[in-house]
Design a protein around this nucleic acid. Structure first.
Length: 148
DNA sequence: GCACTGGATGTTT
DNA sequence: AAACATCCAGTGC
């Protein structure tokens, strides 16, 4: 698997194509040397996912850089209150890092929580997007409120 | 406040 | 039936 390399806020992003469609987007913990910026118009295909997964991923894509949501908040906003842990399962399998911004989903105690590419990468990605920390916890002002 | 524990939880495979 | 990137209430500092 080889893909196109892009730059996103100090990280290298690899977009892997399979038969003309985006198969995976991953984060490489490496400085992007002279790479183009990550395109805004990348179209990811979520039609093969379950209704629950589509609802969660779709809602998550509303969260902008510099904001975070908790697993439980995202579950409720997607229409599945109480499914915080199931949201964690979706995030763990998310093939489209950064475009489906699973690094912006954090624990209810505002610790960043786990990440497929390492907790350090998650923390530094959030920092690069403008999220401030108090020690190892995210400050409350960055919590995103979904529109009703 | 902090750290830890045990149990409940929803969805997928 | 098992797995899990959680959550909450309880306990003891």
């Amino acid at each position: 698997m080889q893909g196109r390399l892009y730059s996103y806020r100090g990280f290298t992003i690899e977009v892997v194509y399979k038969s003309g469609r985006i198969a995976q987007i991953r984060v490489l913990d490496r400085r992007p040397a002279g790479l183009p910026g990550l395109p805004q118009n990348l179209r990811v295909d979520i039609s093969d996912f379950t209704p629950f997964e589509r609802a969660v991923m779709g809602k998550l894509m509303e969260v902008p850089p510099g904001r975070v949501v908790t697993y439980g908040m995202l579950a409720s906003a997607a229409g599945y209150p109480g499914a915080a842990r199931a949201v964690g399962r979706v995030m763990a399998k998310n093939p489209y890092a950064v475009v489906v911004p699973c690094h912006r989903v954090v624990r209810s105690d505002l610790h960043p929580g786990s990440y497929a590419y390492g907790t350090g990468v998650k923390r530094r990605l959030l920092l690069a997007e403008g999220v401030r920390f108090n020690g190892d916890r995210i400050s409350r002002k960055h919590i995103h409120r979904f529109k009703v």
